[in-house]
Write a protein that binds this DNA or RNA. Structure first.
Ligand code: NAD
Ligand code: NAD
Lengths: 209, 209
DNA sequence: ATCTTATTGTGATTAGAGGCACATGCGTGC
DNA sequence: GCACGCATGTGCCTCTAATCACAATAAGAT
């Protein structure tokens, strides 16, 4: 089961499992069955076992999974055992909320650079103390600070340009909040977070059922 | 092709298509082929045709789709030909960004009520002029204003309780930004927006992929 | 009026993900 | 030390979604 292609949905679920496991740790639960974990995550127990099987054997037959160990193992699989350096581009309403969000820091995501085109904002500092830089310094600063992921929070029409610059600056993964499809070269991973698509789903559901 | 069960992924793509079509309208393009539209949306052309086929025939063979008409038709399918009334619960960093976001309004999503537990916030008004109410008035106000969708922007530990109240207040669809799995009765649609899961995907990709 | 060209709409095919069910194997109790 | 119970790990099946490939068909050229 080692060298199969792993479904993207599996990775997304692993992320969900870590959350449930963290909750269990808070509740001082030490062992959990796939059945119980499945309930917490709203998935099928076999699904959990199969997801984990892609990466090895983590459970004990007849017993279940040791919560702490499993959490550690999944975090390692996902690459969450280390810190990740992020840059944010566009510190408007949404961008500021993201930078201020302390959960990200707790999970190992650290904003080490911020950029904005607004002359009123350049040179100022965010609440976290992070300095806002002009976009033309993206290349140097990102390389300097070894930024690995970029977060795009500008209006949609600038998103592609920003993405190009980020890639040029050595950034290998992009989280895009602008409501537009970004093109990126092979080897660069782009994820989109799209609120209005979700709202549209709700609207469809309420309309048609 | 009329009474089949429609994949959720189809609905999500329809939403994407509307965006591309809106861009095309801005560029004064009047006709588009599934091939061109597919490029803009990053999907397979046959996928587009099949997605549309669930709902009828919208194109002209040998020609393509009339942009304006198709946009109109898809919006109607999604239920975006009308206004939707939303309530937001938790007007912190993220919640404020959402309410302030003018794209939503342009698309027909209108926040008609806001709730927060913080006594310092209750009674104040948001930048849009929307009054912040205490959570215990959720029932009355939501029924009064005929709120159809609820948006949860509180810390995770309160999300389930808020969801229950929203359901109790007659809300039929929930957009949840808190990083937790919400249980809702049948007939209530819940969508989750989950930034950190997306970041975890990127981390996995950079680690392994 | 007929032929050509372009692109849709869709049946057939392929790929993939999810779930079932059972054999495997660990821990506990006798 | 042996047997039993229980939850994992996994082969196999099912179901769904995506893609292919072509027949149907509209517009425009001849
Ligand atoms: N706020 C929301 O709730 C929300 C919801 C869904 C999607 N979005 C999307 O997220 C993005 C940001 O939204 P927002 O509400 O924060 O908008 P905003 O207008 O508050 O902030 C945008 C920021 O980007 C900066 N900017 C503009 N062009 C730039 C450039 N070329 N380089 C660097 N910075 C630039 C602006 O100066 C501003 O600070 C938009 O694409 C929006 O559609 C936002
Ligand atoms: N800010 C982000 O970028 C971000 C990113 C990912 C996820 N989230 C999630 O979104 C949610 C909100 O994030 P935020 O950054 O806006 O947090 P925040 O602390 O800025 O805002 C939370 C708000 O909820 C209110 N609140 C608390 N309990 C409440 C209750 N029982 N009823 C009504 N209101 C209540 C608080 O008074 C506060 O105003 C959190 O669950 C967070 O994990 C936020």
């Amino acid at each position: 089961m080692k060298f199969l292609k792993i479904p993207a949905a599996t990775i997304t679920r692993l992320s969900l499992y870590t959350r449930a496991l963290e909750t269990l740790i808070k509740e001082q639960v030490t062992v959990v069955s796939s059945k119980r974990l499945a309930e917490l995550c709203g998935v099928n127990p076999a699904q959990i076992r199969k997801d984990l099987a892609y990466f090895g054997q983590f459970g004990v037959r007849g017993v279940g999974y040791y919560v702490k160990e499993l959490l550690f193992d999944i975090k390692k699989i996902l690459g969450l055992h280390r810190e990740w350096k992020l840059a944010i581009v566009g510190v408007g309403n949404l961008g500021c909320a993201l930078v201020a969000h302390e959960n990200f820091t707790r999970q190992g995501y650290r904003f080490v650079a911020a950029f904005d085109a607004d002359p009123m904002k350049i040179g100022r500092k965010l609440v976290t103390g992070l300095l806002i830089n002009p976009p033309n310094e993206m290349h140097n600063i990102c390389r300097d600070k070894q930024v690995e992921m970029g977060v795009i929070c500008t209006p949609a029409e600038f998103a592609q340009d920003i993405a190009n610059r980020l890639v040029d600056a050595g950034v290998k993964a992009i989280l895009n909040f602008a409501p537009t499809q970004i093109q990126a070269p092979d080897g660069i991973k782009v994820e989109n977070v799209d609120f209005s698509v979700k709202l549209d789903n709700l609207a469809y559901y309420l309309t048609t059922g």
